[in-house]
């Protein structure tokens, strides 16, 4: 299983603030995870269409699209941060 968390407009477009899904075989990077997620619904596709506008954290640490993901990970997907 993999735990997914969504924030800001990524959450709004997908329609839920998170989900726990079985991680399909062959998905070992953030990039392949995003490709797989984008095919799950129209909302997922809309949220993930522009990868330049997507940032990711794996287990609460910012990660690049080439970062590894494995079962048991917590992967958060969100727009560029705008705090401060």
């Amino acid at each position: 299983m993999i735990e997914l968390l969504y924030f800001a407009w990524v959450r709004e477009r997908i329609g839920v603030d998170g989900e726990i899904l079985p991680l399909p075989q062959g998905i070992a990077t953030v990039s392949s995870l995003l490709d797989w997620l984008a095919g799950r619904s129209a909302g997922h596709a809309a949220a993930l269409a522009d990868r330049n506008a997507i940032r990711v954290a794996v287990d609460q640490v910012f990660a690049g699209f080439d970062a590894a993901v494995a079962a048991g990970a917590e992967v958060a997907i969100f727009p560029p941060v705008t705090g401060g």
């Binding site: 800001a8 910012f62 969100f78 727009p79 941060v81 705008t82 705090g83 401060g84």
Partner: peptide
């Protein structure tokens, strides 16, 4: 601290 807070902490403004 402010420069990094704005770009490296997980906050989003609506």
């Amino acid at each position: 601290l402010m420069d990094w807070l704005k770009t490296k902490a997980p906050f989003w403004k609506a």
